[in-house]
Design a protein around this nucleic acid. Structure first.
Length: 286
RNA sequence: GGGUAGGUACCAGAGUGGCCAAAUGGGGCAGACUGUAAAUCUGCUGGUUUUCACCUUCGGUGGUUCGAAUCCAUCCUUACCCA
C-alpha cells in the first residue's frame, strides 16, 4: 500500500484559446496598450510570444516587437545559463536583452525605466509591443505602475552614504512621470508541474552539454567575482560552486535541477498572487 | 554456517521506558515579497478536528510494564566481516 501523503495541489486554471484577430482588434481600438506573455521557466513563453507576434501581424498588418522581462537575460555574456535562445525570435525584434555587463547589478527600477523607453519607442513606430518573460516583479512593476520614488532607494550593504546619495539623485533626475501601459492583456503559458519539471531536467542536461560550465568559467576568468555569479542564482550559482570545487558535478546537477523546479514554483506563486489581487491572466496551453 | 552493525514518517537521520505523532536536514505543498526577485523570507508536511482532544504509527509477531520507537523472545530483512 502506497499511502504517500499526496498534498493538495493548486489546480491548473482552465486553458483558453487566444484569438489573435480579436486581440489585434482590442489593441488597435485602444482598449489595451500592451500584451504580456508570462509563465514559469520552461513553459515555452518565448516561442509562444513569437507565434503570437506572427499571428497578430497576420491579423492586422502591424509589426510586433518583443520586450523581454527577464532579470538575467539583461546581462551580456550570460547566454546558455539564462537560456537566451535568440534564434527562437525568428527575426522578431527584441528588447532589453544584453543591455548590462555581466557582473553588474541591474534592478527593477532600472527595468522600469528601460521598459518605458522601449514601450514608447515601439508604439511611436506604429508597432505592437509584447512583453514576454518570467520575472514577476519586473512585469508587475511596469504593468501596475509601481512607484519606486517613494520607496527606499537601494542602499549599499554598509553605511555607504555616497552610493545611496547617487542613486537618489539619479531617480530624481529621471522625473516622476514615467510613461507606462494603462491596460495590459495578460496571457499565461500553462504546463502541468510534471511536464514542466521534466522539461527543466532535459533542458539542464542540454545546457550542460552545450558548454554552460565553460561559459561560466569564462566569466570567472574575465574577472566577474564568484560571489556575484553566485548571487545571480540557479545555473550561475551552482555551476560556480562546482567550478570552485564546493560541489561535485553530480551534486551540482542534482541540486541545480531541484533549485530550478523550486524557482518555477515560486514564479507560479507570484502569478497566482497577481490573479488574487485582481489581474486577469488568460492561461493558454502551449 | 558463524559474527557484527542496522531496519524510525516521502528521503536521510536523531531518539534507547513516560515531557514522542516522534529532534534536525532534504524534498514536497502553500504563502509573502514596490529599488538584489534566478534573490530574500514565512507557514504546513500521519488521520479526524476550529482549538482542546482523540485515533493509527517507529520491520513482523508475541511478551515484560501502570506505561514501549525505546526492555525481552522470536521471525523476516539489509550491509559488512569470518568461513
Amino acid at each position: 500500500m502506497h499511502r504517500q501523503s499526496r498534498p493538495i495541489m493548486a489546480e491548473l486554471p482552465p486553458a483558453e484559446h487566444i484569438d489573435a484577430e480579436a486581440l489585434a482588434k482590442e489593441y488597435l481600438n485602444g482598449s489595451i496598450d500592451l500584451i504580456c506573455v508570462l509563465g514559469p521557466t520552461a513553459s515555452g513563453k518565448t516561442k509562444y510570444a513569437v507565434r503570437l507576434a506572427r499571428g497578430l501581424e497576420a491579423a492586422c498588418g502591424r509589426s510586433c516587437e518583443i520586450i523581454s522581462a527577464d532579470s538575467r537575460q539583461v546581462y551580456r555574456g550570460m547566454d546558455i545559463g539564462t537560456g537566451k535562445d535568440l534564434a527562437d525570435y525568428c527575426g522578431i525584434p527584441y528588447h532589453l536583452i544584453d543591455i548590462a555587463d555581466a557582473g553588474s547589478q541591474y534592478n527593477v527600477f532600472q527595468f522600469q525605466q528601460d521598459f518605458s523607453a522601449a514601450w514608447q519607442d515601439i508604439r511611436s513606430r506604429g508597432c505592437i509591443p509584447i512583453l514576454c518573460g518570467g520575472t514577476g516583479l519586473y512585469i508587475r512593476a511596469v504593468t501596475s505602475a509601481y512607484d519606486f520614488r517613494s520607496s527606499r532607494p537601494l542602499s549599499a550593504p554598509g553605511p555607504d552614504s555616497e552610493a545611496t546619495l547617487d542613486l537618489t539623485n539619479g531617480s530624481k533626475g529621471l522625473g516622476p512621470a514615467k510613461a507606462l501601459p494603462a491596460s495590459t492583456y495578460f496571457i499565461g503559458t500553462l504546463v502541468t508541474r510534471e511536464v514542466r519539471n521534466e522539461r527543466i531536467d532535459r533542458r539542464l542536461d542540454a545546457r550542460l552539454q552545450e558548454g554552460m560550465v565553460d561559459e561560466i568559467r569564462g566569466l570567472l576568468d574575465a574577472g566577474v567575482p564568484a560571489e556575484t555569479l553566485i548571487s545571480y542564482g540557479l545555473e550561475y550559482k551552482f555551476v560556480t560552486l562546482y567550478i570552485k570545487g564546493e560541489l561535485s558535478y553530480a551534486q551540482m546537477r542534482e541540486q541545480l535541477a531541484i533549485a530550478i523546479h523550486q524557482f518555477a514554483k515560486r514564479q507560479m506563486t507570484w502569478f497566482r498572487g497577481m490573479e488574487r489581487s485582481g489581474t486577469r491572466i488568460h492561461w493558454t496551453e502551449v
